[in-house]
């Protein structure tokens, strides 16, 4: 059976140890986590975990059921195939010398990203997008010399209701 990428949106009790239960479930059963992002929701007692995982259909069904079986997990939604918005945030520190500063600014403008820090020989760019668009952007910047990158995992929400 073919493997597919899935985005899971999981609401959990905001309690110590919950993340370790989820991570332990994945490592213990040999499932993989491609990215993970966690923060409290507007209800401080509840956190949202957004997780990207790759699995075939049977394993995916198990993953969802096993997650649901964890006592601290309130709901599990597989957004894959649904109508949803997905974003990742990246901060990219890139070499910016006099000969390429203009070029960098031009690329950043095309993508409508932002320069959030300016130093004598580097910029930090803030980029928000879906994963593949970010990859394209990073590719364009690579020749300039990327010093460091930090990326969040995907976060996602259903559109409308």
């Amino acid at each position: 059976m073919s493997e597919k990428k899935h985005i899971l949106s999981i609401l959990v009790d905001n309690e110590p140890g919950v993340l370790s239960r989820i991570a332990g479930l994945f490592s213990g059963r040999g499932y993989n986590i491609e990215s993970l992002s966690v923060a409290p929701t507007n209800d401080p007692a509840v956190s949202r975990v957004t997780m990207v995982t790759v699995a075939d259909e049977d394993i995916m069904e198990q993953i969802k059921k096993q997650l649901h079986k964890l006592i601290n997990v309130i709901t599990v939604h597989d957004l894959t195939g649904a109508n949803f918005i997905q974003r990742e945030l990246a901060l990219i520190k890139v070499n910016a010398k006099s000969d390429n500063r203009e070029e960098i600014l031009r690329i950043v403008n095309i993508f409508r990203y932002k320069i959030v820090d300016v130093a004598p020989d580097s910029f930090i760019i803030q980029a928000t997008a879906k994963g593949d668009k970010l990859d394209a952007f990073i590719k364009l910047l690579t020749p300039m010399g990327i010093k460091e990158i930090v990326k969040t995992g995907s976060i996602a929400l259903y559109r409308g209701n």
């Binding site: 140890g17 370790s20 239960r21 332990g24 479930l25 213990g28 006592i71």
Partner: peptide, 14 residues
């Protein structure tokens, strides 16, 4: 012990 028994209990508490 909560960490150790996480995968072999239905649930656990400190």
């Amino acid at each position: 012990i909560v960490g150790i028994t996480r995968p072999c209990t239905k649930h656990n508490y400190l």
